[in-house]
């Protein structure tokens, strides 16, 4: 190989590598990014059982049930619709009735959302940003409520 050919092949190799990395990145974004939904969104969006999503809303009052061992069931609501969620594990410290929560997981065939992580992430108002935005958009939550 001449020096020029060598250099060209190095550059081609580099570009092929970058191309592969870019392709992989976009494939992964399409496959692995999980969308955020509020319960009422689920009536219009088509979410397959087994598709990983994040479900956010408020923990509905009076729905927290302790099951076997560390299993917990509760409903996530945006006050229009609510979705049953089951989770096995320790709930975060900030998990409370009528407080914002984000769960991540998949829908089972029975329509119950099986969460593998529950986050009660919050800003100063004890409300996850996504949940607050979603509730505001749906006219449920007003700033004045959070004193």
């Amino acid at each position: 190989m001449t020096r020029k050919q060598k250099r060209l092949s190095v550059i081609a190799g580099g570009l092929a590598f970058l191309g592969a990395a870019t392709g992989l990145t976009f494939y992964a974004l399409g496959q692995k990014a999980s969308y955020f939904y509020m319960p009422v969104d689920l009536t219009t969006a088509s979410v397959m059982p087994g598709q990983r999503i994040r479900l956010g809303g408020l923990v509905e009052k009076g729905t927290i049930q302790r099951g076997q061992g560390a299993m917990v069931g509760f409903s996530v609501t945006d006050t229009h619709k609510s979705v049953k969620v089951t989770y096995t594990g320790i709930l975060p410290d900030l998990f409370r009735e009528e407080q914002g929560v984000i769960t991540e997981g998949t829908f089972g065939p029975d329509g119950v959302f099986v969460a593998d992580s529950v986050l009660a992430k919050h800003d100063e108002r004890y409300m996850p940003k996504e949940v607050a935005d979603g509730l505001k958009a749906k006219g449920v939550w007003q700033e004045s409520k959070s004193e």
Binding site: Y27, A28, L29, Q31, K32, A33, S34, Y35, F36, E104
Partner: peptide, 11 residues
Amino acid sequence: KISVGAPFFNL
């Protein structure tokens, strides 16, 4: 709204 978490980075 989407979130990109561990599954994406692992891949």
